[in-house]
Simulated assay, not measured.
Amino acid sequence: MTATNDVIRLTAPDGATATMSLNGGHLLSWQPAGAPEQLYLSPRSEYASGKKAIRGGVPVIFPQFSDRGPLPRHGFARTLPWELVSQEQGQDDALAVLRLRDGDATRAIWPHAFELELSVRVSGRSLDIELACENTGDAPLQFTAALHTYLRVADLDAVSVEGLAGLRYFDSVKQAEALQRMDLLLTGEKGVLDLDRIYFGVKERPLLVTEDRRQVVIQQQGFDDAVVWNPGPERCAKLADMPPEGWSEMLCVEAASIGRPIELQAGENWVGRQSLSLL
């Protein structure tokens, strides 16, 4: 396990690795034991602390999802510098804990006292990401949040997401609600590209992302919703920090709480977790 400047590298005894950046509290890489890289990170991503979020990996969305409120898009946690609280290697895992507290920059646009902790644990073929928030002020606060996980794929047409059947979702492209009727979401289907959906009430049901013989099980706790996103070729071409073909190499499956904001009274805590396992 090493920490160099703003980058922290975790290595479990079995060889599983994860890399994190203190810029944005951002998970950059996850490589399970004996397996290739599982996260997509744009080769055009900028690393400008306080200005530009890193494109790819797992950005922390807090305290506002997207443009659903008055704050900058996706809030401020993903662009501010975090501090390393601890890192350790256990008998079968490696763990790092990062922290972000309120300061002048956050209180100027969001007048609340808070403390965020991001814990990342890697072991074998599993990755656990935990986001915790404490209201350290004397007034109630509410927020929306997400772990904006970019999964790396080789062929988007071969990818499916199982476990969303029966859920209502908001289609952010069409600006309309709909029902997911099929048990399988074929992300590469014609007409489904430029995919931006918030699925409500996912809670703790597992999602299975399949690409040919590769399967990743995604489970969440504390987060009510899930987001499935791919910009498609037209929108991707307009993203300065993505290569034109980047859309075909990634799929975001995000643990999120959006439909019903999380409310914390003074001194209260909330914890959300996303766990990924490569089968």
Rank of each mutant, 00 (worst) to 15 (best):
I54Q: 06
H74Q: 01
I8V: 15
F62E: 06
S86T: 13
D92I: 00
F114L: 05
H74S: 01
R68E: 11
S21F: 02
P70N: 12
R73C: 00
A35F: 03
A96T: 13
V85C: 03
G24V: 03
I109D: 14
R107V: 11
A33V: 03
R101E: 11
P81I: 01
G25L: 02
I61M: 08
L98C: 11
I54D: 05
S49M: 05
E46Y: 08
V85N: 08
F76T: 00
I54A: 01
P63Q: 05
G15N: 13
E46C: 08
P70R: 13
W30N: 10
D102C: 10
P81T: 02
T11A: 04
G69C: 08
T106V: 02
L98Y: 12
G69Y: 08
R68C: 04
Q87F: 04
T19A: 09
G90W: 04
G75Q: 00
P43Y: 06
A53H: 10
Q91M: 00
G15Y: 15
H26A: 03
L22S: 05
R68D: 11
Q89Y: 13
R9E: 15
L116K: 11
Q87T: 07
A18N: 08
I61L: 09
D92S: 05
F65T: 05
G25H: 10
S66A: 14
G57K: 03
R107L: 09
T19N: 05
A53D: 08
L27T: 08
D102A: 09
L22M: 09
I109T: 15
D93G: 00
A96P: 01
D93C: 00
A16Q: 06
